[in-house]
């Protein structure tokens, strides 16, 4: 795939140089810096995946890390996703903290068995004697004009599985901190990265104190209606909110869920109690999805505050289409605003 950010070699990211001015980095670079920081902090952190070593990954997220940490900490693995996760489980039993890269969302399914049968359950089966500090990084979602199996949003399968934590970052700051928090966690974390947003830039303050991993965040305050979203849809929803403010005078609140399992819905409940309206936006098909779960919980928690049913704006309940149709498939700014109108028109 495309170069993510080839500007320079990664700088030390341990926060030891607070004097340096905050600089703008991409999500891709922030992940690279976060991985580097985690590897510097803990020698048990190892990276595993296809093409992540010499090539630096097809998205260059691990660029330069094998060169600096060696082949025993950055493994160019055989082409076998079940192998990547299955072996990571064994390494974790042995005291390592593996960070697996699944090259594309649609390639995670050969590893599905290892993830749901072993990774998710070993802590439970061993009654806490075996911890699974494994992170599985997954570039997910569409919008890059790719062929089949390269644009999917499989997060709901994993949120549905007890024992797994599921998170999705949406910006460089979260990418940098969340990947480190996921690696520090003693629980298995499915870490979804919005691949079409890898180039998005933001200032990254390495000395900041991050918010907890499993917390959602209000990114934009507003009183007209609430939009809950995650991953690549966050940017779309923020743009929709700006557009609604300019064009319609609507004041939309936008919440980045960040954590999909467990969900952190307190900020959503608090918001909906003020706005009375909720739109949940996601690229994944809507049926039996994260969006469905949020709709169910919010109507239960906020029933008397709701002025309209929760509206979901999602990918359709079809396979991901050929890429010439993905602009139609993916919820865009107009479809988000249409969903807001539906809610307001109730």
């Amino acid at each position: 795939m495309t170069e993510v950010d080839a500007r320079s070699r990664p700088r030390p990211a341990d926060g030891s140089d607070p004097g340096q001015a905050p600089s703008k980095v991409t999500i891709g670079k922030a992940l690279n810096l976060g991985l580097r920081a985690a590897m510097e902090r803990d020698p048990k952190v190892i990276l595993m995946g296809e093409d992540i070593g010499r090539l630096g990954g097809v998205f260059r997220i691990t660029d330069g890390l094998q060169k600096d940490f060696g082949e025993q900490r950055v493994l160019d693995t055989p082409l076998a996703e079940s192998g990547i996760v299955g072996a990571a489980i064994g390494l974790a039993i042995r005291g390592y903290r593996p960070v697996c890269e699944i090259q594309f969302d649609g390639f995670i399914f050969p590893a599905f068995d290892q993830i749901v049968s072993q990774l998710a359950k070993l802590n439970y089966r061993s009654q806490g004697r075996i911890r699974m500090p494994v992170v599985i990084r997954v570039p997910f979602g569409g919008g890059i004009g790719a062929v089949e199996h390269h644009s999917e949003s499989p997060e709901s399968y994993f949120a549905h599985t007890a024992g797994l934590k599921v998170v999705a970052c949406s910006n460089p700051v979260d990418a940098y901190w969340m990947i480190q928090q996921a690696i520090e966690s003693d629980e298995p974390v499915l870490f979804f990265e919005p691949k079409r947003r890898y180039h998005e830039k933001a200032e990254l303050d390495l000395t900041a104190t991050p918010v907890p991993l499993h917390s959602s965040r209000v990114l934009r305050r507003g009183g007209t209606a609430t939009i809950a979203c995650y991953g690549p849809m966050v940017k779309t929803c923020l743009e929709a909110a700006e557009s609604a403010a300019e064009q319609e005078g609507h004041d939309l609140e936008v919440i980045d869920l960040r954590t999909l399992s467990p969900l952190d819905l307190e900020p959503v409940h608090e918001s909906v109690r003020r706005t009375g309206r909720l739109v949940v936006a996601s690229e994944a098909p809507g049926e039996s999805s994260i969006a469905s779960e949020i709709a169910a919980r919010v109507q239960q928690e906020c029933f008397y505050s709701l002025e309209a049913p929760v509206v979901r704006v999602t990918g359709f309940d079809t396979p991901y289409p050929p890429s010439k149709l993905e602009e139609e498939y993916l919820p865009d700014l107009d479809r988000v605003l249409h969903a807001v109108e539906q809610s307001l028109g109730w």
């Binding site: 359709f316 079809t318 149709l325 498939y329």
Partner: peptide
């Protein structure tokens, strides 16, 4: 030609689906 948008919803199921058709 760029396929028409309704192509996205066709042949999801061998015997069709009222839910997909409604979408």
């Amino acid at each position: 030609p760029v396929p028409s948008a309704d192509r996205m919803f066709s042949e999801v199921y061998a015997n069709g689906s009222s839910a997909v058709s409604a979408q």
